[in-house]
Amino acid sequence: MNLLKKVAILFVSFSFVAVSTTSAKEFAPKKPIELIIMAGQGGGADEIARLVQGVAEKNDFTSKPLIPINKPGGSGGEALQYVKAKSGDQHTILITLNSFFTTPQNQKELDINILEDYTPLARLLTDTFMVWIKKDGAKTSGINTLDEFLARAKQGDLVMGGTGKMSEDELLLGMMRSMFGFDAKYVPYSGGGAVAKGLIGDESDFTLNNPSEQMGFYQSGDSKALVMMTPKRNPAFPEVPSSHELGYPDLEYYMMRAFVAPADIGAEATKYYTGVLHDVYMNAEFQKFNIDDGKLLSWIEGYGLSDFFAVEYDKHTEIVAAFN
């Protein structure tokens, strides 16, 4: 036991020295930083989280490594509760997507208030959605424009593949339903990749995938995009019209890729993580990857981000209410 005690004393004295030498003002992480991902491995959020990790690691943006941990349980509900419970923890950050707005509303029992339970850090990117059909789909062959598609969809027998009940794409289907007056059967899959494959494998007739999820099939000509739900065309998809130019300005929807931290981590830590994310954001490799992938670089931080969260939360409350 003597030995044990000695080791313990050594440890404690060691740590005192270390703690006291770091200056009180500048925040620097003392241990590896948990990067919680509120979605599964291989999804869009996971991809960005690992890209951020890779860029930060390669360029030494953080003094301690970022460790990605997937907590996809309950559409991100588990991750939200986990980070909420870590209030004051300066070594955890969370990458969020739009389920940040929808999950707390669909699962009231989680008791999450996104504006109070988290410290907003920064939004790096927004992703959009497109209407996809297969090139020679059984029910959609010969369709080349959104209007042709809508006319066909009004027959009401199309199947749409999506990423899960009450997820963004089903809400979006709900929006389109009330906008255009058509209905479709909704089949949930696990993940955007599986959704894209279901379309090409002729199981579904159309999907509302993110650009990157269909990129491979788009390049090989197996799938066609009819519209991009943005005001302007995207350089990665030059021939796909935007919803605004087709005359449907209400058909606009974005998927955000933003980072938050637990509540009450203090101004210094907030500044540190926002700075790290900004370094990643300004990295040439990071920017090129996302532009090629059809994403929009859209930095906001601090109060701007809180306002954005508030607006989006209210918007999703309306969409969810309209859907039900």
Partner: peptide, 22 residues
């Protein structure tokens, strides 16, 4: 493996080790 195992209240003991590691 870069997997952090739970450290509970003993966490501060490990800060100097992390300082050495990275």
């Amino acid at each position: 493996l870069k997997i952090t195992l739970p450290q509970g209240i003993s966490e501060p003991l490990f800060y100097p080790i992390y300082e050495l590691m990275y």
